[in-house]
Simulated scan of single mutants.
Amino acid sequence: MRYTIKLPKLGDTTELVVVLEWLAEVGDSVAAGDDLLRVETDKVDSDVPSPVSGTLVEHLVAVDDEVDIGDPIAIIVSD
């Protein structure tokens, strides 16, 4: 199954983040809970975990991109 991963809510007031780095590369196998990327909010840096297990097949955002909560960030395919 193919999953479009969206940026989850990271705090009560956070609406926009900046992508600092990808922690998982395209082709990597990830488990639910594994960190996919690190983002910067207005208050703190935060890691974004994968909600599903599978293979990361596409990054939909790049380092230094500004991303709104709920925007698609990655595609993961599970068996």
Score class of each variant (00 low, 15 high):
69 I>H: 04
36 L>T: 11
21 E>T: 11
24 A>W: 00
53 S>P: 01
61 V>R: 10
44 V>H: 01
28 D>H: 12
75 I>E: 13
60 L>I: 11
26 V>S: 07
68 D>T: 10
20 L>A: 11
59 H>L: 10
17 V>E: 03
41 T>K: 05
36 L>G: 05
4 T>H: 01
40 E>Q: 14
46 S>W: 00
45 D>T: 14
71 D>W: 01
3 Y>Q: 13
62 A>L: 11
50 S>K: 04
51 P>G: 08
60 L>Y: 06
55 T>K: 14
9 K>D: 13
67 V>R: 05
6 K>E: 11
22 W>I: 09
46 S>L: 13
65 D>A: 12
76 I>A: 09
51 P>T: 05
75 I>Q: 12
21 E>L: 01
37 L>H: 04
63 V>H: 06
64 D>E: 15
73 I>T: 06
5 I>L: 12
44 V>D: 04
9 K>F: 00
60 L>V: 06
5 I>W: 03
38 R>K: 15
72 P>H: 07
57 V>G: 07
73 I>D: 00
30 V>P: 02
58 E>R: 14
45 D>E: 14
20 L>T: 11
42 D>R: 06
60 L>Q: 09
62 A>C: 07
10 L>I: 13
26 V>M: 06
25 E>S: 14
2 R>G: 00
17 V>M: 08
25 E>R: 13
48 V>H: 02
23 L>P: 01
51 P>L: 09
44 V>K: 07
40 E>H: 05
6 K>W: 00
34 D>F: 07
34 D>A: 14
77 V>E: 15
35 D>N: 15
35 D>K: 12
45 D>Y: 04
29 S>P: 00
27 G>Q: 09
69 I>K: 03
74 A>C: 10
5 I>H: 05
13 T>Q: 08
62 A>H: 10
28 D>K: 07
16 L>P: 00
36 L>Y: 03
29 S>K: 14
41 T>D: 08
55 T>H: 01
43 K>E: 11
53 S>G: 15
55 T>Q: 11
26 V>W: 02
5 I>M: 07
24 A>Q: 14
13 T>S: 14
57 V>R: 13
66 E>F: 09
11 G>K: 11
37 L>S: 02
29 S>G: 05
29 S>R: 15
44 V>A: 15
61 V>K: 11
49 P>A: 04
41 T>A: 08
32 A>C: 06
72 P>Q: 08
